[in-house]
Computed example of a mutant assay.
Amino acid sequence: MSEPRSTRRRTGLVAAVALTALLAIYVWLVALRAVQLVATGTTVGIVLGAALLVAPLLVIALIAREWLLALDVQRMADELAAAGELPVDDLPRSPSGRVDRTAARAAFGPHRDRVEADPGEWRSWYHLAFAYDAAGDRARARAALRTASRLHRGKDAPGDLP
């Protein structure tokens, strides 16, 4: 028996928050050590400390970017659910639960055609992202979700297919 969707969503959120908190502690410790190195006043300490300060800033920016994307993807999913337009995963699977790649590729075409017909529609990009994911192309799925998010927020013009 499958657990309810709200329970899975809550479990995923708790895990994401916990991992983000652990990462925040790690970033804080690295930044603390970097400041201590800079405070030594030696050339090597200052250079190493400055280099170490860049890493936490980069991590913070990347984590913030991922959280913002996750929040917007959830808002898009909620809108699609309210309209009865959420992607349905009805692809055939092997006994181990893996999606049949041939069926996934065949189901991919209509989503790609929808995006090509109206590249400014975020809903089409959202569905394309899940078609890419079913076909096993995670990088393109993420790129399509980012495009859907930009369009959903009203920013940026649509790009080429990922």
Rank of each mutant, 00 (worst) to 15 (best):
M76N: 03
A77E: 12
A77T: 04
E79N: 03
L80M: 14
L80A: 13
A81K: 09
A81M: 03
G84T: 02
E85F: 11
L86F: 06
L86G: 07
P87F: 06
P87I: 00
V88L: 13
D89F: 14
D89N: 12
D89M: 14
D90N: 14
D90E: 13
D90S: 09
P92G: 04
R93H: 14
R93E: 10
S94I: 01
P95K: 00
S96A: 15
S96H: 08
G97V: 06
R98F: 14
R98I: 05
D100P: 15
D100H: 11
R101E: 07
R101Q: 14
R101A: 15
A103N: 05
A104S: 07
A104H: 05
R105Q: 13
A106Y: 04
A107P: 08
A107I: 07
F108W: 14
G109T: 13
G109S: 11
G109D: 12
G109R: 15
P110G: 04
P110C: 02
H111D: 09
H111P: 09
D113Q: 14
R114L: 10
R114C: 07
R114Q: 13
G120L: 01
E121M: 01
E121N: 12
W122C: 00
R123D: 00
R123V: 01
W125C: 03
W125N: 01
W125Q: 01
W125P: 04
Y126N: 04
Y126H: 03
L128R: 02
L128M: 02
F130I: 00
A131Y: 03
Y132N: 05
A134H: 12
A134M: 11
A135D: 12
A135E: 10
A135C: 10
A135T: 08
G136A: 03
G136E: 03
G136L: 04
D137A: 11
A139N: 04
R140C: 12
R140D: 15
R140Y: 11
A141N: 06
R142L: 14
A143C: 10
A144Y: 07
T147E: 14
T147V: 03
T147S: 13
A148Y: 01
A148K: 03
A148G: 09
S149C: 11
S149N: 09
S149V: 12
L151F: 07
L151T: 04
H152E: 02
H152Y: 15
H152C: 01
R153A: 13
R153Y: 02
K155I: 02
D156M: 02
D156S: 15
D156L: 13
